[in-house]
Design a protein around this nucleic acid. Sequence first.
RNA 1: GCCCUGGUAGCUUAGUUGGUAGAGCAGCGGCCUCUUAAGCCGACGGUCACAGGUUCGAAUCCUGUCCAGGGCACCA
Length: 498
Amino acid sequence: MATDKSIGKSLAEIIEVRKDKLKQLRELGINPYPYEYKRSHFCNDIINNYTDIKEKVVVKVAGRLSSIRQMGRANFADIQDSSGKIQVFLQEKKLGNLGYKLFKLLDLGDIIGVAGTVTETRTGQITIFAEELTILSKSLRPLPVVKEKDGKVYDAFKDKEQRYRQRYLDLIVNPESKNVFETRSRLTQWTRDFLNNRGYLEVETPILQPLYGGASATPFKTHYNALNREFFLRIADELYLKRLIIGGFDKVYEISKNFRNEGVDRTHNPEFTALEFYETYVDYNYMMDFVEDLFHNLCERLGKSIFHYDEHEIDISQPFQRKTMFELLEEYTGLNLKEADEDEMKNACESKGIKTESTDHYGNYIEYLFDRFVEPNLIQPTFVMDYPKAISPLAKIKRDGSDRIVERFELFIGAKEFANAFSELNDPIDQEERLRTQERLGAEGDAEAQTYDKDFITAMEYGMPPTGGVGVGIDRMTMLFTNQSSIRDVLLFPQMKY
RNA sequence: GCCCUGGUAGCUUAGUUGGUAGAGCAGCGGCCUCUUAAGCCGACGGUCACAGGUUCGAAUCCUGUCCAGGGCACCA
């Protein structure tokens, strides 16, 4: 990344030239930064309604000057707004002396307004023949220059670092990037629609929390001066949403940022967006149907069913596979571990070449085997059901009576986790024991152990209805539905070092 | 945190076993009244990420630092 110090002389010169043009505009009595412009059309509206508009009305468009082609006294330019681009034809005899002087002082990147009638050029291109030109904002820095012919882009602005650090430039010159973010916004809106239509209530719960919980992760810490107390940026909103279920709401959800003080990579950003939703009197089987419906619904609204995630082609419109963790372990390791105890599970790990640690327990062993042998194979949408209790302290014991397994599922697509859900534990005594166990594991050095939240236990002691709950990673969902393989390409401002 | 790869003009880039940086676009000055990667002519524009080192000589080789991308670990 070039710093101002290292920017060469030539950029400084370009900026000086533009500042000089700014001065010249002011000397002509033109305000280069006026207050408003009443536009009549977006560029694409003109192109789409050309036959109605043709030569009949004066249109006024506003946007960024993105290309200029000068032929003596005939000038063509492209103006780009949020809808797209349209060509403008400019000549002195229409613009007048002052208007033409203004035109000559324009640079690529300037924000301008153009008024004129619409007709076709000799080559058949829909074009505004400018009668009036207005500068709306003078640009002082040169934009990346991107050329295009027949849909092929030349000199594309593709430096990843600069695209992330100066996302606005990326959005101006890379329409496909802008499209990803527009799609992201639609996906979250459609997700809200889906939940709202089913009677869900959208809520907001604290991001600044006195205690972090609801997930296994390292938090960001901060200090609240007024209370002279350590606070945490939330790693999940689960425990607050459950308090609302206890409070009598039947169906609640929240779409909001979580923060985890962990590594950054292609699928992780320290702040990321999660959807969590909870519904009373349902279990994880109901929630599996629900999640599948949600994904199918998003597919439908996008009008697509095949997506590309990493090198995989994924069909979201098909029914999702549903398999238990033990079924999958047997499928991919050949070992039937359903009845295995902790020692046998440990042996299974070692027989498969997995190194274990002295602090590991039954749950870890299953996790290791699953992560190594099963997860990489879960390409098409698959619900993995029934996780070890030891790594699922907020989920209810499996109803068949097994004490080691809980009713939990995760949705895997493209070998990545997309959703995590439980038949929520609502037995306050069991919950207290499980969080106490987590607290003890944490004290023994287990970095993934969850915290003991007394206030949450108190809430549960008042009685929590049977509830199904789900968390969905919105960033990953966006990656899937926009065919992006890096989380940075679905975050407007991904985390960067400074 | 570790490993690999990379960083050359505002943008996109070339640069051979080390010989002292070349182009296109943009910008600047000309020419041009239907172009659209407009074209033609001309002159500009570079501390080759940063700092050391080796060498007669470094964009190039070595070391360190910064930043990025990818991978590992951790996680979603």
